[in-house]
């Protein structure tokens, strides 16, 4: 199973830090996570299913390339890291 690790900044909205999930693509892995944490979907993806503009998704340290369809491959022992840019004003 892949391991999905979430940024700490997300935890004040949805209490999730580290989850194991099955899937061969980012879309499949996140889809399984969303079954367990349905509220999480809207925090990471926009209504079209694309990664939100300031959300970064890294598979084994590499940013994914398909931010619209989330088709980047995920291996059995991959680590998917979900992090966001920080800005303020």
């Amino acid at each position: 199973m892949a391991t999905v690790v979430f940024t700490q900044n997300l935890r004040r909205h949805v209490d999730v830090e580290r989850v194991a999930a099955n899937g061969t693509t980012v879309n499949e892995v996140l889809g399984q996570v969303f079954e367990q944490y349905p509220r999480l979907r809207g925090y990471l993806l926009d209504d079209t299913g694309a990664a939100r503009t300031h959300i970064a998704l890294l598979v084994d340290g590499q940013s994914i390339t398909d931010r619209q369809g989330l088709s980047d491959p995920v291996a059995e022992d991959s680590k998917l890291f979900v992090v966001q840019a920080l800005s303020g004003g």
Partner: peptide, 8 residues
Amino acid sequence: EHGHFGTK
């Protein structure tokens, strides 16, 4: 409105 996480 969470800039990174969307509008709630």
